[in-house]
Amino acid sequence: MSDIAERVKKIVVDHLGVEESKVVEAASFIDDLGADSLDTVELVMAFEEEFGVEIPDDAAEKILSVKDAIDFIKANGPAA
């Protein structure tokens, strides 16, 4: 399970160009990590590619933090 969290964090670090230490589970993409609305769309696409899941737009709108992403993938992703 922690593997999912690590992989999510790595994607966030790569795509937003932020320090690894800032990417804690509670971190909000927009408020804490400097993302804009387009960055969050790209992040969701990256999660889809990495975990082979489809994240519908209405679900994507609710993925606002690192924890939101991890929880969604744990609940909907392929068996880890």
Binding site: L38, V41, E42, M45, E48, E49, E54
Partner: peptide, 10 residues
Amino acid sequence: ARRLSPFFIP
């Protein structure tokens, strides 16, 4: 279409 980057246009 779902794989097109949101940064494609800008």
